[in-house]
């Protein structure tokens, strides 16, 4: 019974969000369907980024590189080789993962600010390669005509397709974060030194995590190209790498759904504010200041501090019948 309650308590929020996401296109205009499509794609991007930030404890300012590699892989395969979109998604994950493997190999040797700077430098390297390589990537013109198949042409259809892909992606990410590998990431975040002394090759695990994150960033990028009908080098820029940072910090990096909720806040704010003023970055900066000062753990940090999402105790109770003396925080 306890286990069942724990399960329901743990999954009621994602299940509720999924249900809302399912019915949204039925009650809003096409403009908002586009906004929601953007939210879920960027939410996946931010959640993938958060594998490094929230779970591994390192700040990457270069995840847009893998998002861009994914977007360009899909764009190039669809435009130049007429590959079906469905085949481009895994291909984008593979290329983004390979990019993350090569660049991450150097990044995971560093920690803290040095890690952040190197990820940003590599991100900019990818940006400039794409920007300059006219014959292959279209340079600063980008790639146009990345049209989804006819059955996904309408806004609602592409939204549901994206929702399905993002849901599968999020479920996979959730499994990873709750697995022994995910806990090893939390252990590295909490105490890298101790993790080495229990026999874990920290650098190797960080690289694996970096690659997984890159693959899912690539998957999000792969959804973006056909959604936007084009891709441009800006997708790989350091500014675009900042977006998942904003989202994770706003939503809460220490809860699995934090970055997705951050994407909702960020994208909504963007859609609203740009309707009134061209100074969107000013508003987003102010929101960021407020979040950092008043909600250091993001939105989910506040909610968690009120006692929600405490499911672990329920899961563990009953394993040791004689023991009831848990000291709860």
């Amino acid at each position: 019974m306890d286990k069942k309650n724990g399960f329901l308590k743990r999954f009621r929020l994602p299940a509720g969000l999924f249900f809302v996401a399912l019915i949204l296109p039925l009650v809003v205009t096409e403009f908002w369907v586009h906004v929601f499509t953007e939210i879920i794609i960027l939410g996946l991007f931010a959640s993938a980024f958060n594998l490094i930030f929230g779970y591994m404890g390192q700040l990457s300012f270069g995840q847009a590189a893998y998002y861009g590699i994914g977007a360009y892989t899909t764009g190039l395969l669809m435009v130049k080789l007429q590959w079906p979109l469905i085949a481009c998604l895994p291909a984008s994950m593979i290329t983004a993962g390979l990019g993350a493997l090569i660049l991450g190999y150097f990044c995971v040797k560093l920690r803290g600010i040095y890690f952040a700077i190197l990820t940003m430098a590599f991100g900019q390297l990818v940006f400039f390669i794409i920007f300059q390589w006219y014959s292959f990537t279209g340079g600063d013109n980008g790639l146009q005509g990345i049209n989804p198949p006819v059955w996904l042409f309408k806004a609602n259809a592409y939204y549901y397709f994206s929702l399905a892909v993002v849901t599968v992606g999020m479920i996979l990410l959730y499994f990873i974060t709750e697995s022994p590998f995910g806990y090893t990431m939390k252990a590295i975040r909490d105490n890298t030194e101790r993790t080495e002394f229990i026999g874990i090759n920290v650098q190797r695990y960080m690289l694996i995590n970096f690659v997984i994150s890159g693959m899912f960033c690539g998957l999000a990028g792969a959804l973006w190209g056909p959604f936007n009908r084009s891709v441009a080098p800006d997708l790989c820029s350091w500014q675009n790498s900042g977006h998942p940072v904003f989202m994770a910090v706003m939503g809460g990096p220490y809860h699995f759904l934090g970055p997705m909720i951050g994407s909702v806040i960020f994208t909504f704010l963007n859609a609203f504010v740009t309707g009134f003023t061209e100074y969107w970055p000013l508003v987003s900066g102010l929101v960021m200041i407020i979040v950092v000062l008043l909600m250091p753990g993001g939105l989910f940090g506040i909610i968690k501090s009120k006692g929600y999402f405490e499911t672990k105790a329920v899961v563990l109770e009953g394993n040791n019948p004689g023991d009831t003396g848990d000291k709860k925080k």
Partner: peptide, 24 residues
Amino acid sequence: TYENVRQSILAQQKRTLNFFTPAE
């Protein structure tokens, strides 16, 4: 405290590269 000890045990059992079984 439980997760601390479990992490060390999983490392000793070489099960930390398991991606899809919930650690709990």
